[in-house]
């Protein structure tokens, strides 16, 4: 897949802020970032309150996604350009989520909010008004999403890529101390997983590394590109970033994101866990 179909540069974005049919959407983990300033004409999606079911641990259902996008004024034919802070973690998560519900015309702003700011480009606090639409979503494309049983079956058969930091991978750390509610019961990693931290796929300005650099990175750790791949992290956002690198940039065909990730796997009863360095 060509990069231009999935990534846009900050230059392109600035030139297309007023282009009809292009909708910029900011998705941050710090959901107050938008209020402090955002790209002109961008709307906000709150990953926690708008993309997650507020009772069950799951996504909003198809009807919920349709309602959300309709209220945001996003139409089926719109080109959605996602960006956010934290090197685009949650924007990448939203990208994967849009794909899951069948919105193919979606792009990621390369480098996200950081690159935009480092370029010295303008931010505004003006909130755009968009007319409601009647958005129609598709059923979830489950070829993109891995669930727990498939992950357990993937041990020693598929590629498992753990994109967390080495200390989380080895079991030294479990979760950030400020998010105890997202801790798992046990530390460690899924047996046979390769540890390729998400940050190794990005430049310091938040843009993705080149395809050649990405290929070299995954070759070095021994990723078997002939096999299916499942990426995971702690709650599925950093692994969306790696899912994007593997499927959308490198064009690997069978790549799934395991959004249950370590907070689910590390709490399952009876599943195997490995501690220490990668095999």
């Amino acid at each position: 897949m060509s990069r231009e179909n999935v990534l846009v540069t900050t230059e392109w974005a600035e030139e297309n802020l007023d282009t009809p049919g292009v909708v910029f959407v900011e998705v941050d983990e710090d959901t107050t970032a938008y209020e402090g300033g955002h790209i002109r004409n961008a709307v906000r999606i709150d990953w926690k309150t708008e993309l997650q079911d507020q009772v069950r641990r799951d996504f909003v259902d198809r009807a919920g996604f349709e309602k959300l996008l309709s209220e945001k004024g996003i139409g089926n034919d719109d080109t959605v350009v996602l960006y956010g802070g934290n090197n685009n973690w949650f924007a990448a998560y939203a990208y994967w989520y849009f794909k899951l519900y069948g919105h193919d015309n979606v792009r990621l702003l390369d480098g996200g909010r950081k690159k935009w700011e480092l370029d010295g480009r303008e931010l505004t606090d003006e909130v755009p008004q968009r007319q409601n639409t009647s958005y129609q979503a598709k059923e979830q494309d489950l070829t993109l999403r891995a669930f727990r049983d498939e992950v357990v079956d993937a041990i020693d058969t598929k590629n498992l890529i753990d994109v967390r930091s080495p200390d989380e991978f080895t079991g030294k750390l479990n979760a950030p101390a400020h998010l105890p509610q997202e801790s798992s019961q046990r530390s460690g990693h899924i047996p046979s997983a390769l540890n390729v931290p998400w940050a190794s796929t990005a430049n310091e300005d938040g843009t993705f590394k080149t395809n050649d650099e990405l290929k070299e990175l995954y070759e070095e750790v021994g990723l078997d590109t002939g096999k299916a791949t499942i990426a995971y992290c702690r709650i599925g956002e950093r692994s969306s970033h790696t899912w994007f690198a593997l499927r959308e940039l490198l064009g690997l065909e069978d790549v799934k994101n395991y959004d249950g990730s370590w907070t689910e796997y590390g709490s399952l009863v009876g599943v195997p866990i490995e501690l220490g360095a990668q095999r």
Binding site: E29, D30, N86, R164, S165, P166, D167, E168, K172, L173, P176, A177, H178, L179, E182, P197, W198, A199, C233, R234, I235, E237, R238
Partner: peptide, 16 residues
């Protein structure tokens, strides 16, 4: 306050 980021905790939802 003792929350992130710590070395090895490059994930941080919610930098303080």
């Amino acid at each position: 306050t003792p929350h992130k980021p710590r070395p090895g905790m490059s994930d941080g939802c919610g930098a303080p």
